[in-house]
Design a binder for these strands. Structure first.
Lengths: 344, 344
DNA sequence: ATCAGGCGTGTAATCGATTCCACGAGGGGC
DNA sequence: GCCCCTCGTGGAATCGATTACACGCCTGAT
């Protein structure tokens, strides 16, 4: 593969001049520029990004560590992050943690070894030393979706509390009183916050949230299934199950179907995160939609600000309840929630 | 950030010795080794992958350019690729083409600039010069899922023909005669092959495939919707629509629902690619499942063989029909297809 | 006692870029 | 006519690793 030396030889100039042409430095004669460009073309030369990074100490690359690449919410996030980064001249390297802290740490370490310019993380756990070290070590970093409390790192996320309150109001209005939740890992902020928001909303309606109605999940389908199986074998099963993410909702649906129960007649189901398939499930699922695209853009903006020395902005965007039929009522013209499709 | 020089100074040895310890070169005294390790620990030193790559001319990184990161089939593929690569000591950088050739080329170029050791591609079009150049230029490369004919590059893919024949047989048995297909772009192998397999299978049953029953899609949901709208407004609409990927099936479902039609009573629907949600759509969708995990593993194996100088192996794995209720019959004990869930 | 050979180590070249510095040529002001 | 400044250019240092080569020391064979 041709190097800058070959180009220099071909064009009859020094490597310094070639470099200047390539980086559009002003002080190059039109003649030299033409010859260099011709040589580049003739040799099909492409600058070696590795060598360039070593010298300049920047890679123009962002790392993105997501919790689970099989979760449509995170792939949508990844897509918008990559798009926003590309618009700013950055590449993105994605690391998939599969909800496993040690895999997350592996990716963080690998990305740091590659000397990425900045890191976008949705932490799988509450306090990975790997991540904390990186943050203290001065690596530009932004948390997205989930975050680690007590660390001085900007956070870009959606606030689900109002939407959860809307959801509980909706369920209460439909006459449901026994409401259960499949929680995410307590070590994640989204895992605990959604439970807290749910508990708080129930309190406002004077409803209890017994321990038996809190299923411990890990944001994966299998755990949603297990938790639901336990709910269904309770002496007093819940009227409605609220899954804290879309994969656990899938698992819940599996379990419900296995029992031969119908949604929403026998039991209601709602989920955090809205995905296109929820429109076509049986029945269409009521869900809380996050503004994924805007989250990705805001996260990139904050991270690039940090990298380039501008003050970064933490951002909290609202999530939105999307009512469908899985809790007992189709969306009607009387409903305050108009849209059936979320704006993913 | 500490460099190898700092470690050498701290340990009181030369950088050569540090490097030898780090690369477990045999010729290092136990004493030096201990001191170096201690220094590494004290400084929290991590080797700079950029510098190392420049020197050794290898990055231990694979590039993976997938057609669409929002398509669950490709994320499943990406996950298994990353897993297999990690097991062999390689990282993976994913590029998402969004089914756009120019975006695909952008990612191929960027990956090549980074001097990845090898490239896994699922080409979005039939003959990107970018890709062809790379292949001829000697970049180790393997096509996965889709390929470009006439290029000497190993291909790892699933053969859908038998499964499509099974599907058509199934549909014929149910009494369906007017069968339509939503095709992918003709420039992709999977786009044209699936139509051909379908056409061939219809011929075997003496059924025609009129042009009006071939919808031109692009593997995205919107195109599936458009094609289905056209089918439904035909004087003689088809009995069954077969979508060549899962996203177009989603679009088809949108269109059918919009018309107020029921599946399968008013019209049947089947899809290529099986995803977990198909079990819970209304109704559960009959689909052709690919062995995604095995495809990813085989692709990595072939690519790493190529990189490390062993002869690579092209692989073709069978796809499998999974019968559900969307074409008019639930899976029964008489059905030759036992499993309702695919082994994603 | 001598010498070959192996072992542990350090010096320095190298990978492919960027960039500081110096230098020569040319032009304008005095 | 001389000086200074600007402009275009090239030489060489540098980034952080790896590794060929040389060197000194110790051991064991002769």
């Amino acid at each position: 593969m041709a190097s800058i030396k070959d180009v220099a030889a071909e064009a009859g100039v020094s490597v310094a001049t070639v470099s200047r042409v390539l980086n559009s430095h002003p002080s190059v004669s039109p003649d030299a520029r033409t010859r260099v460009l011709a040589a580049v073309d003739a040799l099909g030369y492409r600058p070696n990004a590795v060598a360039r990074s070593l010298r300049t100490d920047q890679t123009r690359t962002l790392g993105l560590v997501i919790s689970d690449v099989l979760n449509p919410y995170f792939t949508a996030l990844a897509r918008s992050v990559e798009e926003a980064a590309r618009a700013l001249g950055y590449s993105v390297i994605i690391g998939n943690a599969d909800e496993r802290p040690e895999l997350q740490d592996h990716h963080v370490r690998t990305l740091l070894d590659r000397r990425i310019d900045g890191l976008l993380v949705s932490p799988t756990d509450g306090g990975s030393p790997q991540i904390l070290d990186a943050a203290r070590g001065g690596t530009p970093m932004v948390f997205v979706d989930r975050w680690i409390p007590g660390v001085d790192v900007p956070v870009v996320r959606a606030d689900g509390c109002p939407a959860v309150r809307d959801l509980v109001g909706h369920l209460h209005r439909l006459g449901h009183r026994r409401l259960a939740i499949i929680a995410g890992p307590a070590a994640t902020t989204t895992g605990s916050e959604r439970v807290e928001a749910f508990r708080e909303a129930l309190r406002e309606h004077g409803l209890p949230l017994p321990d038996a109605y809190i299923g411990q999940g890990d944001f994966q389908a299998a755990s949603g299934r297990r938790a639901t199986v336990r709910f269904l074998s309770l002496p007093e099963p819940p009227d409605v199950v609220f899954a804290a993410d879309n994969l656990m909702a899938l698992g819940a649906l599996d379990a419900i179907r296995e029992r031969g129960l119908r949604v929403p007649q026998d039991i209601g189901l709602a989920a955090f995160d809205d995905i296109p398939w929820f429109v076509h499930t049986d029945p269409p699922l009521t869900a809380i939609a996050q503004p994924t695209g805007e989250l990705g853009r805001a996260a990139v903006r904050a991270l690039v600000d940090l990298i380039e020395g501008r003050p970064p902005q933490s951002v909290t965007l609202p999530a939105r309840l999307v009512v469908r039929r899985s809790c007992g009522e189709g969306p009607s013209s009387h409903s305050p929630y108009q849209s059936q499709r979320s704006n993913l």
